[in-house]
């Protein structure tokens, strides 16, 4: 790791001011991705602004129609809250128990790893990403591999998920990292069906329009027979583009069946 200072403000406003003041400052959430990245010397921030001491970023609350998760809430805490069972199951399947005690939803969404699970939940439930500056609809938030709508001094504060009528997330693990080789999040709320796919695409998490259309007409696994997503799928040592495309269909069907 290169040298840097760690600052731990207790107020959000102060954290934002620190990001503005230090041009190459970076936000430290749970650090479960950032710290390995720093060890590889792939990033060289002069200052890390830790959000751990900002209490208002933590916790889960719900009302009749939504669940709001503080950006600093760790995966284990989301896994323990079963208001949206598909969301808690997803959080309970990220990484491993130790990672789930440190990693945060805000960190995951800010990083937008193309194989991460949370982006599928945000997109698959039509969440709103609330930041220090504004509210961003999930449909506008994800902008490609590791790219989001956040600007450099903007901090995610919470994520609001509409409570669906039914939802499920099914993931096929990359055997080494246990990130999603393919993960599919399916939700249904009234007549609105959303299908979000992570792990598969060269463009990061995406909504599978063809599947949404088919499921809107008939919300059953067989409605997806013969469908494969368009677009460029990732090909690497863990799976070819064809394999990933195939898995998207399989995981989507399993998710529908689990709804």
């Amino acid at each position: 790791m290169y040298e840097f200072d760690i600052k731990s403000p207790s107020k959000l406003g102060k954290a934002v001011r620190m990001l503005r003041k230090h041009e190459d400052a970076q936000v430290l959430g749970g650090g479960q991705t950032l710290i390995p990245t720093l060890k590889q010397r792939l990033a060289a921030p002069s200052v890390l602004v830790s959000l751990a001491k900002i209490d208002k970023l933590k916790g889960i609350s719900s009302d009749s129609g939504t669940v709001t998760v503080g950006a600093g809430t760790c995966h284990a805490d989301v896994a323990a809250d079963d208001t949206i069972s598909a969301l808690s199951a997803l959080a309970g399947g990220i990484g491993d128990p130790a990672v789930r005690n440190r990693g945060t939803i805000g960190g995951s969404l800010a990083n937008n790893d193309p194989s991460a699970c949370y982006p599928a939940a945000a997109l698959g439930l039509g969440a709103t990403i609330v930041t220090s500056a504004r509210d961003i609809a999930a449909d506008d938030y994800f902008q490609g591999l590791f790219e989001t709508a956040l600007d450099e001094t903007e901090i995610i504060t919470s994520v609001t998920f509409p409570i669906p009528d039914a939802a499920a997330y099914v993931k096929f693990d990359q055997p080494a990292s246990r990130f999603a080789l393919v993960g599919v999040f399916v939700s249904r709320k009234g007549s609105d069906v959303r299908v979000a796919v992570t792990g598969a695409s060269e463009d990061g998490v995406f909504r599978w329009a063809g599947a949404e259309e088919a499921l809107s007409a008939n919300f059953a696994p067989e409605a997806l027979d013969g469908l494969t997503p368009s677009g460029d799928m990732i090909g690497d040592i863990h799976g070819s583009p064809e394999y990933r495309a195939h898995l998207v269909g399989v995981m989507a069907k399993r998710a529908v069946a689990a709804c």
Binding site: P175, A176, S177, D236, I237, H238
Partner: peptide
């Protein structure tokens, strides 16, 4: 699970536990 893979330029493509699959308890 395991197998070190080099590309044609001699770069090891799975040079960490992120990509080199070690057996875990649930495997």
């Amino acid at each position: 699970l395991e197998g070190a893979v080099y590309d044609e330029d001699g770069q090891l493509l799975n040079g960490s536990f992120m990509d080199y699959a070690m057996p875990r308890a649930d495997d």
